[in-house]
Design a protein around this nucleic acid. Sequence first.
DNA 1: GCCGATGTTCGATGGTTGACGAACATCGAA
DNA 2: TTCGATGTTCGTCAACCATCGAACATCGGC
Lengths: 109, 109
Amino acid sequence: MRSADHPDVSDISLTRVLSALADPLRLGVACLLADGEERQWGDLDVPVSKSTLSHHMKTLRQAGLTRTREEGTRCYVRLRTVELESRFPGLLASILQAAPAEAAPVGLR
Amino acid sequence: MRSADHPDVSDISLTRVLSALADPLRLGVACLLADGEERQWGDLDVPVSKSTLSHHMKTLRQAGLTRTREEGTRCYVRLRTVELESRFPGLLASILQAAPAEAAPVGLR
DNA sequence: GCCGATGTTCGATGGTTGACGAACATCGAA
DNA sequence: TTCGATGTTCGTCAACCATCGAACATCGGC
């Protein structure tokens, strides 16, 4: 169940957040979501197979970085910016600022 | 050669920093060094064998988080706080602020 | 010059992770 | 109702990582 594994804000773990963002592909997805917009998975142009993308999105979701919403067969995702900021002030901002230089190329289709 | 693998400030990689700090033990070491003091390996009270500690210190060093200085057979280590701050503004501070809650218990002997 | 203390390196081991394709489930549209 | 689009799950594989003990190198003190 996808909606079931969103951790509560107070349960978001620093080490999980760090390892989630330590992967170039997930960092790239986070970068792309940094504008606050909600995106559909299929709109993400990523250099991996869809099963691998699904796996990475699950990792981001379980780390508490993103929130996934299902609508029919489609999945929409957005960054939990505000919640992250309240849990780890300044963290996401400082990471995303430096991220584009070494994140995987993730674009919009 | 230990002193050889300190990356230059401009070569410090975000993903390497993140994965280095994603490990509870290394996060604990970073926490302990957060006061800016230089410490000797042997003074660190860590729950792992010395070979494992050596491995983790190498990881921190190669990620650019710490600077190691050798003096005889002893090794001293300190956080590269200022350099990190110039490379990734705000990053280290926000991590270290949240770290104590889930870092491995690293004390002074 | 010998011995103990301090780290490093090596090899082995077990666990985790990222990747893929294939098979599956579900929903919407024709 | 059948088919295509969208994600998930499963099994597998290779790579990586944390850990340990043992062997080694080096330096300082006795």
